[in-house]
């Protein structure tokens, strides 16, 4: 529940951003984010809220773990709690996208 999940900001409208998570766009709220965000920034989301703007130099390292979790989830080798947590985080973000 406290893993959070990183995504790339596609558009910003006030406190609402559309954020791309591995090809799926979801709505994320920005009022708790530690810094102002712009299109192209990466943010770390927790239950529907961005809690951190990920500095550009740290994006790659931050994404690595999640890439591996997605792979594990896609393989579907039994229930993986971390991968399930990540899916839960994604489901907590609003629809409102493609």
């Amino acid at each position: 529940m406290c893993l959070g999940v990183p995504g790339k900001v596609v558009s910003v409208d006030g406190f609402i951003a559309q954020v791309d998570f591995w090809g799926v766009t979801r709505q994320v709220r920005l009022e708790l984010c530690d810094a102002d965000v712009e299109v192209g920034d990466y943010v770390l989301n927790h239950v529907g809220y961005a809690i951190r703007r990920i500095p550009p130099e740290e994006v790659e390292e931050t994404l690595a773990l999640y890439d591996e979790l997605l792979e594990a989830a896609a393989k579907g080798d039994g229930v993986d709690l971390l991968a399930a947590d990540m899916r839960g985080e994604l489901d907590a973000t609003g629809g409102g996208g493609s």
Partner: peptide
Amino acid sequence: ELVYGVDQ
């Protein structure tokens, strides 16, 4: 109701 976040 089961929710993933408070906004839901």
